[in-house]
Amino acid sequence: MAAWKGLTTNVLSHEPAIYENSFPVEGGTYENAGHVSSQIKALLKGMKISKEVVRRAALVTYESEINICSYARSGKIVLQVTPEHVTIEAIDEGQGIVDIELAMQEGYSTATDRIREMGFGAGMGLCNIKNFSDFFRITSEIGKGTHLKMVIRIDKDFDGI
């Protein structure tokens, strides 16, 4: 089951990456939440990518990290940078999402009270991710895990082919 945004062609392209790296994310704890986002932000800044793209990439990475911390046993964030775009994938091993359409609704959340007390779980995370990416795909399998793929354009003319 997949939900797509803004995709008319096979987007999530296959041109050779100029940079690729994978960062592990620990599930079940917020102790290091934001650590991967900080690293990715610093990396992209170092690549002289525009502030706006860095800001959006940091945000979608942060929200993905929080989701892994909140709902998964473990996971990873995969960063790929080409001259045209930044691609961020969040892949986790966890409970998966029962109803993706519902999960994508602003305000809907399955967060526990503990998560909410910390100011997470307001049902905004996936919406933020979608709103701040140019292309977004989510797939999930119950009991197995969830896979998010976000693409942010560097080159404004990049049309996803």
Partner: peptide
């Protein structure tokens, strides 16, 4: 909010 995640948010933003 007083927990450590506020630092990550402030720093990222």
């Amino acid at each position: 909010q007083t927990h450590q995640n506020i630092v990550a948010v402030a720093s990222l933003k």
